[in-house]
Write a protein that binds this DNA or RNA. Structure first.
Length: 465
RNA sequence: GGUGGGUUGUCCGAGUGGUUAGGUAACGGCCUGCAAAGCCGUGCACACGGGUUCGAAUCCCGUACCCACCUCCA
């Protein structure tokens, strides 16, 4: 079976075929960096990371573009509120986003263009739309896309313009459903938030930057365009109208991810119910726990978030991680490299990236591996351990990936290891003379210091909580 | 009002016209000095009402409820 993906454009699961054999162009709408990222945003990044990794595994050369929208109304408002340049806020949030993506082992895109760096491309595209009669400039220097000029408007989100609620803020548009391509500079707005254009000084509206940047880096037609489901309308609908209106093919597949819900409602900046990687870290959740949790649901389904659910996911992840560590200890880490993916895993991933089923396949193999380790069947254990590692690695979750190590850990680990071994030697002596009270006291004291000791057939091992 | 998605066992979460999802929690067992980890077993789930079918949680019709989008949002 080959890769099949759900395409919002046709509302169906379709066989994935790139335009050019072996080459895939992917555009993901990244964030508008008006505030720091929360794990709802990161869910999208992780889901796409999974897609990109799977496309590459399948053998495609992937060009992955994920933009940053670094100018819009809200960013300007934030600048005003905080009394500092709007662009410093955008950049600060962009850096936080990059840091969190990196923490979750999300690979960087091929390129990450910013809206403000593509004013030329944006102006060119708007000019073409004006020439073709799909956009018009007004006296005040605004340029609007004319929804009524584009018969297919609404095709992506399956809405008819007449059904839509009209926006209360009509500005100087001819039709309340028209949307802004270029916003004229207004008195009081920062001078450094405006650029020269054929229609006077101003700045781009939301939507147009994605059409312009996708065209610049991926060409007039490309393979996959994505974002979360809340972008489908109006953002993606508008992008589609702009790009097609300008005569571009645009994308073959539309992929929309589900949102992360918090107590039934979505997590969002405007609701203020957000959670960051850092704040979860303070509660003892490591980035790998979060990444595993985010893969336990299908990317298109809404995913419920709570600390209890995250804790439950953490336990599930530790089961796999325990197995890999256990196998590496008994067989040697080298023996667990280079394993293969199970057919169940491959089928699940090919079936619209069914990561919950893929994880089930990993758990199945981990169980077999544990049984093999228990019975001393090293051949079977090696095979299972290699497979589990390879599959987890495919999901960006290999427990032995150095990425998950705390940089400061390595040195400290050596020092602590020496001390703990000393204590464990004394405990072993106590156990040998069946002085279990003394043995347990040593274990309890270590536990008090945050060190958990487990006895295995090959002797005691320790871990830090 | 319009559009889309959903309702699965303690909880989360896949899936499918007839065969064990998986994890998690609980209980029982094995192993262990104890614990942890691990393994085995138990729970026979699919909102409700009809219908189609040899057989439906899976298809069809209806009902109820939930969520999102239609205004900035991954």
């Amino acid at each position: 079976m080959s890769l099949r993906l759900y395409d919002t454009g046709t509302r169906s699961v379709r066989d994935f075929q790139p335009r050019k054999p072996g080459e895939v162009g992917v555009y993901l709408c990244g964030l508008t960096v008006q505030g720091p990222p929360h794990i709802g945003h990161l869910r999208g990044g992780v889901a796409y990371d999974m897609l990109i990794r799977w496309l590459r595994r399948t053998g495609y050369n992937v060009t992955y573009v994920r933009n940053v929208t670094d100018i819009d109304d809200k960013i300007l408002v934030r600048g005003e509120e905080q009394g500092r340049p709007w662009w410093s806020i955008a950049y600060e949030n962009e850096r936080k986003l990059s840091r969190d993506y990196a923490a979750l082992n999300v690979e960087p895109p091929t390129y990450e263009p910013r809206a403000t760096g593509h004013i030329t491309e944006i102006i060119d595209l708007i000019s073409e739309l004006v020439e073709r009669g799909h956009a018009y400039a007004t006296e005040s220097g605004n340029v609007w896309f004319s929804v009524s000029s584009w018969a297919d408007y609404g095709e992506l989100s399956n809405r008819r313009p007449e059904d839509m609620l009209s926006s209360p803020d009509t500005g100087d548009k001819r039709d309340s459903r028209d949307f802004g391509l270029w916003k004229a500079h207004k008195p009081g707005e920062p001078e450094d938030a405006a650029w020269t254009s054929p229609w006077g000084r101003g700045r781009p509206g939301w939507h147009i930057e994605c059409s312009a940047m996708a065209r610049r880096y991926l060409g007039d037609g490309f393979d996959i365009h994505g974002g979360a489901t809340d972008l489908m309308f109006p953002h993606h609908e508008n992008e589609l109208a702009q790009s097609r209106g300008a005569g571009l093919d645009f994308t073959n597949f539309w992929i929309h991810g589900g949102l992360l819900n918090l107590s039934g409602t979505k997590m969002s900046k405007s609701l203020g119910n957000t959670l960051s990687v850092a704040s979860l870290g303070e509660k003892g959740f490591r980035p790998a726990d979060i990444r595993y949790y985010l893969t336990t649901g299908h990317y298109r389904s809404p995913l419920e978030f709570s600390e209890d659910l995250l804790a439950e996911a953490k336990t599930g992840w530790e089961r796999l991680s325990n197995f890999v560590h256990r196998a590496a200890e008994s067989l040697g880490a080298e023996a667990t490299i280079g394993g293969g993916l199970s057919p169940d895993f491959v089928n699940a991933m090919d079936d619209d990236l069914n990561t919950p089923a893929a994880i089930a396949a990993i758990h199945d193999m981990a169980r077999e591996g544990n049984t093999a380790l228990d019975s001393g069947n090293d051949t079977a254990a090696t095979s299972s351990a290699g497979g589990v590692r390879a599959m987890l690695d495919q999901l960006g979750l290999d427990p032995l990936d150095p990425h998950w190590e705390d940089p400061g850990d390595a040195k400290l680990h050596g020092a602590v290891d020496a001390l703990v071994k000393l204590a464990l030697e004394q405990r072993a002596e106590a156990r040998a003379r069946k002085d279990y009270a003394a043995a347990d006291r040593i274990r309890d004291e270590l536990a008090h210091a945050g060190i958990t000791v487990k006895d295995t057939p090959r002797g005691p091992v320790w871990t830090v909580d």
